[in-house]
Structure formats: C-alpha cells, structure tokens
Simulated assay, not measured.
Amino acid sequence: MVEGIPYGLGGWGVPSIFREAGRLLGKYFTFIAPFIFAFVLPTAVIQLLEVFGLAWWASGQDPPFLQKHRHVLSKAIAGVDGSYPATPAWESEFFILLGVGILMWLLASLAIASICKTVQYIYSEEEDPSATKSIFMSLPQAILRLLVTSIWILFLTLVTIFTVSLPFYLLSVIFKEKHEALFETVNQIFIYIAVTILSFLFLLSQEVAVLEPNNYGLAALKRSSKLVQANILPALAVFAVSLVVGGSLSKLSSYIASLHGAGKVPQWAVYILAILFALLYLTYVAYIYLATVVLYFSSKVKHDAAEGTLPGFRHGGSGNPYAPLVVVSHPILQNYHNVQ
C-alpha cells in the first residue's frame, strides 16, 4: 500500500497537486473510506438536517422525524405541569447551536487528522498491517493539538476584526451618525479582506498541527504562513477552490431546502436531491482535504529544501526525505508486530 514521496513533489504546480489528490482518492479509497464514513458522513447528515429543519419550520411545519414525537417534545419543553421553563428561548437556541458547532468542529477535525495520517502513511515507505487501527488510535493526540491551534486561530481572528473595526468606530463617533452607513459598509469590506488573508495564511495550520507534533498552536500558524508563501500559487488555487466550491455547495443545500419549504417539487424528489447532495458533499470534502494535504507535503519539501533543513538534503542523502514518517501506532500494537 505504501509508495513513498512522489518524485519532484517540491516542484509540483497546481495541476499536479489536484491530479495527485484525485489519484489518492481513487487508488486508496478503500483505505480512506472508513475515516470518510466515520467523520465526514455524520457532518453531511447534520448539515442536511439543520438546513431542512430550518426549511420545515420556516414553512410552518414540523420535520417528519419530530412529528411522531411532537407530544413528547412538547411535554419535555413545557414541563410536567404545563408551565414553560424560565430559560428564555434564545438561550436554549444558543446552547443548541453551540453544541452543534462543537460537534461539527470535532467531526471536521477528526476527518482532517485521519486523512492527513492516511496520506502520511501512503508516503511513508513503512508497511503497517494495522495502519487503519493505528491511525484511529493516534487521533486523540492530534485532536488536542488541533484544539489549541483552533483557539489561536479564533483569538487572532477576533483581534484582527477588532483592530480593523476600531478606526471605523472612531470615525463614526467623530462624525456622529452622519456617515454611519458608509463607515459600516467599508468596515465590513475591510473585515472580509483581512479575515480572508488570515485564513489563507493559516491554510495549512491544521496539517502542520497533525503531522508535526512539535508545531501546534501559534507555532503551527507561523509554520503554515511560511509554507503557504513558499508555494503561493498552488496554495492560492487550493484556497480559491475550497472557497468557491464550498460556497456553491452551501447555496445548493439552501436551494434544495427552499424547494421543500415552498412546496415547488414533490417531497420524494427533495429527498433524492438531498441524497445526491450528500454524496457530492462527501466527494468534495474528501477530495479537498486530500488536495490540501498534498499541498502541505509539496510546500514542506520546497520550503525545507530552500532553507537547507530537509532531512537527507542537508546531509546529501537520497530517497524519501521524510523516511521514516511516523505512523503513530499504539505500543501494544508495536509489541504485537514485534512478536509476529
């Protein structure tokens, strides 16, 4: 199954990186599939339920999966005596959205970490009969590093928004409400530009946090910025595709939900469209994750070779510059392999 680092990876351009992602998805689908179905599929299902739930409620209906238990839910919400709880509705909605958001982050992080490690294993030149199990068992440590990295991303994003917004807020105070609408519009544009640039620089931060155990949190963000700038055209292409295609899929899901809410097409047709959308979403996410991981390896080889820190390059070695790449196996599994 393993095959080593592709020849000339550090010099690959946009077509080669996207082609390699497609090759990995096609050739190693059975190896990657358990992680896709374990982490990406639940994310797609949750998103579909969220979108369709909003569409049903907007049309004054209850989702079909709640209609049968409506009286039970009503009693649970209202209380045994029929009185509604003191907690305001907006607080309940906030905690529900917070819970869904945390679950979505966890599933997405597990998907990214597992796909990173599958590509790492394929490129490692080290055969592991229990590779799938080893990858699953290595995910908790990767999640901790991704959590610290995500907190730093959130913090720097909030600082960026505050820094960009402060001058416009001061201008609106100075000029009072005379040009408030103009300042608000320009402020939103600058925030969008600043956050987009920040997202681009942090494009490879998750891959760094997963595949470089010593670089997570702020170190992963700094490392990502260097790798992105070292391979800027392919990075721009992957970033643009993820934005455009991801945004288009989001619009498509909302459109499918609106068809049901407006009653423009039969219900069975909406369900078929939803299933097709879920399959399309699964394919897109798996592909774009693979493309980003391939971009990470290409950028890493290019950057480290230019800096003279590439393993093997520095000492005049040959072959796989990352041999051995570590596939984190549990000690029990390693002892088992040694006994065998």
Rank of each mutant, 00 (worst) to 15 (best):
L276Y: 06
L227Q: 14
S130G: 08
S16I: 00
L25C: 06
L41M: 07
V270P: 01
V51G: 15
G246P: 06
S109A: 15
L154Y: 12
V339G: 07
I151V: 14
A194L: 09
R314I: 13
C116Y: 11
G246N: 04
F37S: 08
A142I: 03
G261E: 08
D128E: 12
F200I: 04
T309A: 04
E212D: 14
T157F: 10
V238L: 05
T292F: 08
A108D: 15
R145P: 05
L107K: 05
F277I: 00
A278I: 11
S83D: 03
T160P: 03
G312V: 04
N214L: 12
N338W: 12
G263E: 03
G79I: 09
L310E: 04
L139I: 15
S138V: 00
C116P: 08
L295R: 06
I189N: 07
V265K: 12
L103E: 00
I332W: 11
Q47V: 04
A142V: 02
Q267C: 02
H69W: 07
S253C: 05
V326L: 10
S59W: 04
H179Q: 01
S298C: 13
G79Q: 01
V72N: 06
L166Y: 07
Q188S: 13
V2A: 06
P167F: 04
L73V: 04
D81C: 05
L203K: 03
G308C: 09
S250M: 12
F297Q: 05
V208D: 10
S150Q: 09
E184H: 07
A278K: 01
A306I: 02
T87N: 01
P311V: 01
